[in-house]
């Protein structure tokens, strides 16, 4: 049986466009609002990435740090993640949700317990920022057993030999980090160069759905539209922060941003 993630990519391919993946943080700015946010942007987003916030996110830049701190300050607990996903999946049965976060949170929850709750709430995939290959081999296997995608990451520093090994152990989707940066950094590589690397990876295994993330903004998203999928995160977190500051409704502002992003890659 094909996974929801695989079906989504196939669907996008039929429409001759990349999948749009949105990243927002669970319980940012609070639990209720974060559910409203994903419910509202799901109209334009193909895959929902939901971050479970960590107090010490070493791979994240300022925007996601701010969102994470806000969520934790507003009382985020790990179990909220699953409640949010469950509520969302009630409305959007076939829209995949990918959880993203740091390994200590999964470790404290217990790997098996975590996967059990992922399954129960309808999570389709997991990205764990600080559990690289080969350290993630066991956990990735456990995910596969539960028919949950463990999404491997590749970076500009990943050697070709290593890429081959990682891709061999990957599931339906692989995530390419566009540049040497934490999330939300200013794009310091030309989109053409990113796509060159993207093609090199696709040549290793063209069947894997390869998404590009880190530093993607409204300005440059169009230039990367030949990819299988594009992830936008920090821009959305920034929009929430800005909306709160201006005393505006973050939900409506986010919908606008995601709508614009989608339009640029159609």
């Amino acid at each position: 049986m094909k996974s929801e993630i695989q079906l989504t990519f196939e669907n996008c391919k039929r429409e001759n466009r990349p999948a749009l993946l949105t990243y927002t943080v669970a319980s940012d700015p609070n639990k209720k609002r974060s559910i409203q946010i994903i419910n509202s942007i799901a109209k334009y987003a193909d895959i929902i990435e939901l971050g479970f916030p960590h107090s010490t996110p070493v791979g994240d830049g300022g925007q996601i740090q701010t969102s994470s701190n806000r969520a934790i300050k507003n009382g985020f607990k790990m179990r909220d993640t699953f409640q949010i996903v469950k509520k969302f999946k009630k409305n959007f049965k076939n829209k995949p949700v990918i959880l993203m976060g740091y390994y200590n949170m999964i470790y404290q929850y217990g790997e098996s317990n975590f996967l059990k709750d992922c399954k129960k709430s309808g999570v389709s995939g997991i990205i764990c920022v600080d559990l690289p290959w080969p350290e993630n081999k066991d956990f990735a296997k456990k995910c596969k057993k539960k028919l949950i995608n463990f999404i491997q990451l590749l970076a500009p520093t990943t050697t070709k030999d290593r890429m081959k090994k990682i891709i061999r152990d990957s599931h339906d989707m692989v995530y390419y980090i566009s540049m040497l940066s934490t999330t939300g950094g200013k794009l310091k590589v030309a989109p053409r160069k990113i796509l060159d690397n993207y093609k090199k990876i696709k040549r290793i295994n063209s069947r894997k759905n390869l998404v590009i993330g880190f530093g993607i903004t409204e300005k440059i998203i169009k230039s990367l539209k030949s990819a299988d999928g594009l992830v936008v995160g920090s821009l959305l977190c920034k929009t929430i922060t800005k909306s709160l500051k201006m005393r505006q409704n973050p939900v409506t502002n986010l919908v606008k941003v995601v709508y614009n992003l989608k339009n640029k890659i159609l």
């Binding site: 600080d130 590749l154 970076a155 290593r162």
Partner: peptide, 10 residues
């Protein structure tokens, strides 16, 4: 161990 983002592996 070495629980780091992929970018730092190399």
């Amino acid at each position: 161990g070495s629980f780091v983002p992929e970018t730092l592996k190399k």
